[in-house]
Simulated assay, not measured.
Amino acid sequence: MTTTTNKADWPSSLDDSELDELDNYLRAHAQDGHLLLDGVHGLLSAIAVGPIRVLPEEWLPEVLHEPFADEDEGNRVLALLAKLNDSISAELDVDAYEPILGEVETESGPALSAAGWCEGFSRGIDLRAGLWEKRLADDPSLMEVLGPVMALAVDEGILSAETEFEKLNDEEYDDCLAQLPAVLAAVNHYWSGNPATEAELDALNHTNQSKQEQTPPPRHRSGHWVH
Protein backbone atom coordinates (compact mmCIF):
# COMPACT_ATOMS: atom_id res chain seq x y z
CA MET A 1 0.00 0.00 0.00
CA THR A 2 1.33 3.44 -0.91
CA THR A 3 0.98 6.21 1.64
CA THR A 4 0.29 9.68 0.27
CA THR A 5 1.38 12.67 2.32
CA ASN A 6 1.02 16.39 1.85
CA LYS A 7 4.21 18.29 1.15
CA ALA A 8 3.75 20.12 4.44
CA ASP A 9 3.78 16.78 6.26
CA TRP A 10 7.03 15.61 4.66
CA PRO A 11 9.85 15.29 7.21
CA SER A 12 12.28 18.18 7.46
CA SER A 13 15.56 16.34 6.95
CA LEU A 14 18.98 17.94 6.67
CA ASP A 15 19.72 19.19 3.17
CA ASP A 16 23.02 18.43 1.46
CA SER A 17 24.71 21.61 2.68
CA GLU A 18 23.69 20.88 6.28
CA LEU A 19 24.90 17.29 5.99
CA ASP A 20 28.20 18.58 4.62
CA GLU A 21 28.47 21.06 7.49
CA LEU A 22 27.86 18.42 10.15
CA ASP A 23 30.11 15.92 8.37
CA ASN A 24 32.96 18.46 8.20
CA TYR A 25 32.62 19.31 11.89
CA LEU A 26 32.70 15.64 12.94
CA ARG A 27 35.69 14.89 10.73
CA ALA A 28 37.60 17.93 11.98
CA HIS A 29 37.22 16.76 15.58
CA ALA A 30 37.35 12.99 15.13
CA GLN A 31 39.90 10.75 16.75
CA ASP A 32 40.29 7.01 16.38
CA GLY A 33 37.09 5.31 17.50
CA HIS A 34 34.88 8.39 17.21
CA LEU A 35 31.70 8.23 15.16
CA LEU A 36 31.49 10.08 11.87
CA LEU A 37 28.26 11.15 10.21
CA ASP A 38 27.28 7.63 9.12
CA GLY A 39 27.92 6.35 12.64
CA VAL A 40 25.92 9.16 14.25
CA HIS A 41 23.01 8.32 11.94
CA GLY A 42 23.25 4.65 12.93
CA LEU A 43 23.34 5.58 16.61
CA LEU A 44 20.29 7.82 16.36
CA SER A 45 18.48 5.24 14.23
CA ALA A 46 18.88 2.57 16.92
CA ILE A 47 17.61 5.04 19.53
CA ALA A 48 14.63 6.02 17.36
CA VAL A 49 13.39 2.43 16.98
CA GLY A 50 14.45 1.21 20.43
CA PRO A 51 12.40 0.07 23.42
CA ILE A 52 12.45 3.26 25.51
CA ARG A 53 13.49 6.87 25.18
CA VAL A 54 17.16 7.83 25.34
CA LEU A 55 17.75 11.45 26.36
CA PRO A 56 20.20 13.69 24.48
CA GLU A 57 22.44 13.95 27.53
CA GLU A 58 22.91 10.18 27.26
CA TRP A 59 23.75 9.96 23.54
CA LEU A 60 25.55 13.26 22.98
CA PRO A 61 28.73 11.99 24.75
CA GLU A 62 28.90 9.32 22.04
CA VAL A 63 29.05 12.08 19.42
CA LEU A 64 30.77 15.13 20.95
CA HIS A 65 34.09 14.70 22.72
CA GLU A 66 35.50 18.19 23.31
CA PRO A 67 34.28 21.70 24.12
CA PHE A 68 33.04 23.89 21.30
CA ALA A 69 35.30 26.68 20.05
CA ASP A 70 32.56 29.24 20.75
CA GLU A 71 28.89 29.48 21.63
CA ASP A 72 27.72 30.05 18.06
CA GLU A 73 29.50 26.95 16.84
CA GLY A 74 28.04 24.91 19.67
CA ASN A 75 24.52 26.09 19.05
CA ARG A 76 24.84 25.36 15.33
CA VAL A 77 26.19 21.83 15.78
CA LEU A 78 23.58 20.99 18.42
CA ALA A 79 20.83 22.32 16.14
CA LEU A 80 22.05 20.13 13.27
CA LEU A 81 22.20 17.07 15.51
CA ALA A 82 18.71 17.77 16.84
CA LYS A 83 17.36 18.12 13.30
CA LEU A 84 19.07 14.88 12.24
CA ASN A 85 17.63 13.11 15.27
CA ASP A 86 14.11 14.41 14.69
CA SER A 87 14.20 13.57 10.99
CA ILE A 88 14.70 9.85 11.59
CA SER A 89 11.40 9.26 13.37
CA ALA A 90 9.64 11.55 10.90
CA GLU A 91 11.08 9.62 7.95
CA LEU A 92 10.07 6.30 9.51
CA ASP A 93 6.52 7.60 9.94
CA VAL A 94 6.14 8.15 6.19
CA ASP A 95 8.30 5.24 4.95
CA ALA A 96 10.99 7.63 3.73
CA TYR A 97 13.91 6.47 5.90
CA GLU A 98 17.31 6.08 4.26
CA PRO A 99 20.51 5.21 6.12
CA ILE A 100 23.49 7.51 5.75
CA LEU A 101 26.24 5.17 4.62
CA GLY A 102 29.96 5.47 4.18
CA GLU A 103 31.89 5.16 0.96
CA VAL A 104 35.14 3.22 0.64
CA GLU A 105 37.53 2.68 -2.22
CA THR A 106 37.72 -0.83 -3.68
CA GLU A 107 39.63 -2.33 -6.58
CA SER A 108 36.58 -1.74 -8.79
CA GLY A 109 35.97 1.82 -7.56
CA PRO A 110 33.93 3.49 -4.78
CA ALA A 111 31.45 1.29 -2.92
CA LEU A 112 28.94 1.86 -0.15
CA SER A 113 29.96 0.67 3.30
CA ALA A 114 27.73 -0.05 6.29
CA ALA A 115 30.65 -0.24 8.73
CA GLY A 116 30.17 3.20 10.30
CA TRP A 117 26.38 2.99 10.37
CA CYS A 118 26.51 -0.46 12.00
CA GLU A 119 29.05 0.74 14.57
CA GLY A 120 26.72 3.59 15.52
CA PHE A 121 23.67 1.30 15.56
CA SER A 122 25.54 -1.07 17.89
CA ARG A 123 26.39 1.78 20.26
CA GLY A 124 22.75 2.90 20.21
CA ILE A 125 21.70 -0.59 21.28
CA ASP A 126 24.38 -0.54 23.99
CA LEU A 127 22.70 2.48 25.60
CA ARG A 128 19.78 0.18 26.45
CA ALA A 129 21.73 -3.08 26.30
CA GLY A 130 19.82 -4.81 29.10
CA LEU A 131 16.48 -4.49 27.34
CA TRP A 132 17.80 -5.41 23.90
CA GLU A 133 19.83 -8.40 25.08
CA LYS A 134 17.04 -9.91 27.16
CA ARG A 135 14.48 -9.52 24.40
CA LEU A 136 16.83 -10.87 21.74
CA ALA A 137 17.45 -13.91 23.94
CA ASP A 138 13.75 -14.43 24.73
CA ASP A 139 12.18 -13.63 21.35
CA PRO A 140 13.78 -15.14 18.20
CA SER A 141 11.49 -13.01 16.01
CA LEU A 142 13.41 -9.85 16.96
CA MET A 143 16.71 -11.48 16.04
CA GLU A 144 15.19 -12.55 12.74
CA VAL A 145 14.01 -9.01 11.99
CA LEU A 146 17.51 -7.68 12.71
CA GLY A 147 19.11 -10.32 10.49
CA PRO A 148 20.37 -7.99 7.71
CA VAL A 149 21.87 -5.57 10.24
CA MET A 150 23.54 -8.41 12.13
CA ALA A 151 24.92 -9.86 8.89
CA LEU A 152 26.44 -6.51 7.89
CA ALA A 153 27.83 -5.88 11.38
CA VAL A 154 29.50 -9.30 11.53
CA ASP A 155 30.80 -8.93 7.97
CA GLU A 156 32.38 -5.57 8.89
CA GLY A 157 33.85 -6.88 12.14
CA ILE A 158 31.60 -4.73 14.33
CA LEU A 159 30.07 -7.80 15.96
CA SER A 160 31.67 -11.19 16.54
CA ALA A 161 29.85 -14.37 15.58
CA GLU A 162 29.81 -17.46 17.81
CA THR A 163 30.18 -19.67 14.74
CA GLU A 164 32.36 -19.28 11.66
CA PHE A 165 30.81 -16.71 9.38
CA GLU A 166 31.34 -16.66 5.63
CA LYS A 167 31.92 -13.18 4.22
CA LEU A 168 29.01 -11.73 2.27
CA ASN A 169 29.53 -11.50 -1.45
CA ASP A 170 28.83 -8.19 -3.18
CA GLU A 171 25.27 -9.14 -4.11
CA GLU A 172 24.43 -10.31 -0.57
CA TYR A 173 26.00 -7.17 0.92
CA ASP A 174 24.01 -4.89 -1.37
CA ASP A 175 20.83 -6.83 -0.61
CA CYS A 176 21.35 -6.32 3.13
CA LEU A 177 21.93 -2.60 2.54
CA ALA A 178 18.71 -2.38 0.55
CA GLN A 179 16.80 -4.00 3.41
CA LEU A 180 17.89 -1.49 6.08
CA PRO A 181 14.85 0.83 5.73
CA ALA A 182 12.47 -2.15 6.05
CA VAL A 183 14.45 -3.49 9.01
CA LEU A 184 14.21 -0.16 10.84
CA ALA A 185 10.47 0.01 10.18
CA ALA A 186 10.00 -3.56 11.42
CA VAL A 187 12.03 -3.01 14.60
CA ASN A 188 10.12 0.18 15.29
CA HIS A 189 6.86 -1.74 14.86
CA TYR A 190 8.14 -4.57 17.07
CA TRP A 191 8.89 -2.40 20.09
CA SER A 192 5.65 -0.44 19.62
CA GLY A 193 3.66 -3.66 19.72
CA ASN A 194 5.81 -5.38 22.35
CA PRO A 195 6.90 -2.67 24.78
CA ALA A 196 9.31 -3.26 27.62
CA THR A 197 7.63 -4.86 30.63
CA GLU A 198 7.81 -3.51 34.15
CA ALA A 199 10.08 -6.41 35.10
CA GLU A 200 12.45 -5.58 32.23
CA LEU A 201 12.50 -1.91 33.19
CA ASP A 202 13.16 -2.75 36.85
CA ALA A 203 16.04 -5.00 35.81
CA LEU A 204 17.42 -2.24 33.60
CA ASN A 205 17.28 0.31 36.41
CA HIS A 206 19.05 -2.10 38.74
CA THR A 207 21.74 -2.76 36.14
CA ASN A 208 22.27 0.95 35.50
CA GLN A 209 22.69 1.65 39.21
CA SER A 210 25.31 -1.07 39.69
CA LYS A 211 27.14 -0.87 36.37
CA GLN A 212 30.60 0.64 36.37
CA GLU A 213 31.68 2.78 33.47
CA GLN A 214 33.54 0.87 30.80
CA THR A 215 35.37 2.35 27.82
CA PRO A 216 34.89 0.32 24.61
CA PRO A 217 38.00 -0.44 22.57
CA PRO A 218 38.50 2.03 19.74
CA ARG A 219 37.66 0.96 16.21
CA HIS A 220 39.32 2.32 13.11
CA ARG A 221 37.17 3.43 10.23
CA SER A 222 37.62 5.61 7.18
CA GLY A 223 35.49 6.66 4.24
CA HIS A 224 33.13 9.40 3.17
CA TRP A 225 29.42 9.76 3.85
CA VAL A 226 26.87 9.51 1.10
CA HIS A 227 23.10 9.64 1.28
Score class of each variant (00 low, 15 high):
2 T>H: 10
3 T>V: 15
3 T>C: 06
8 A>H: 08
19 L>C: 05
19 L>H: 07
21 E>L: 14
22 L>Q: 05
22 L>C: 02
29 H>L: 08
30 A>W: 07
38 D>M: 04
42 G>N: 12
44 L>R: 05
49 V>S: 03
50 G>L: 09
51 P>F: 06
52 I>W: 04
54 V>E: 10
58 E>Y: 14
59 W>V: 07
65 H>D: 05
68 F>K: 00
73 E>M: 13
74 G>C: 08
77 V>I: 15
82 A>W: 04
85 N>Q: 13
90 A>D: 05
91 E>W: 03
91 E>M: 11
91 E>Q: 12
93 D>R: 07
94 V>Q: 09
95 D>W: 15
96 A>I: 04
97 Y>G: 02
100 I>E: 12
103 E>N: 09
112 L>E: 14
115 A>G: 12
116 G>P: 06
117 W>L: 05
117 W>T: 01
120 G>E: 09
126 D>S: 13
126 D>V: 13
127 L>N: 10
130 G>D: 09
131 L>Q: 11
134 K>V: 06
135 R>A: 04
136 L>T: 12
136 L>S: 00
136 L>G: 07
136 L>F: 13
141 S>D: 06
155 D>I: 10
155 D>K: 01
160 S>G: 05
162 E>W: 08
176 C>T: 03
176 C>A: 13
177 L>I: 00
181 P>V: 03
183 V>W: 02
187 V>Q: 02
188 N>A: 12
189 H>D: 15
190 Y>V: 15
192 S>F: 12
194 N>R: 12
194 N>P: 02
199 A>R: 05
204 L>H: 15
205 N>T: 15
208 N>L: 15
214 Q>K: 07
220 H>C: 14
220 H>D: 15
221 R>F: 08
223 G>C: 03
